[in-house]
Amino acid sequence: MLALRVNGSHSINRLRSEMDRLFDSAFEGFPRLTRDAWFAPTSPAVNVWEDTDNVYAEAELPGLKLDDIELLVMGDELTIKGERKDVCEDEVSYHRKERGAGSFNRVFRLPVGVDAEKVEATLRDGVLTVTMPKADEAKPRKIEVKTLPR
């Protein structure tokens, strides 16, 4: 399984957001679906899955350019770092400000070791997809079962 490391403030934010969510849903009459409810304003939510050859990680990073994102892969550890710049303007009045800004850093332990040299990442329409080929020793190996001559 995948171990997820979160620092202290992260969990607090998560708890607070969850409380907000419960409060809102109780008083608004119907639940509101806010996908970022679990995380701090900028810390992206991440989905991870795998097939026989690769491990994939996907994160939604709207408003970020490739230059704003840093990916590090070491053994079975993936780090996603980034920053969404605050474009707060002084001359305007904000009716709502829900889109967070600031930097984030998330570290994941992947289910298997990956080949860091062959990792590829794409960023399209605010969705980051990281494709990490599994290290050879981590790939499932089919074992031939021989029948012995009698």
Binding site: R35, N47, W49, E50, Y56, E58, E60, F108, P111
Partner: peptide, 15 residues
């Protein structure tokens, strides 16, 4: 849709 077709998520934090 961009969910994995064959396997489920190892970790799912958003839908």
């Amino acid at each position: 849709d961009r969910e994995p077709q064959e396997t489920g998520y190892v970790l799912q934090e958003y839908g």
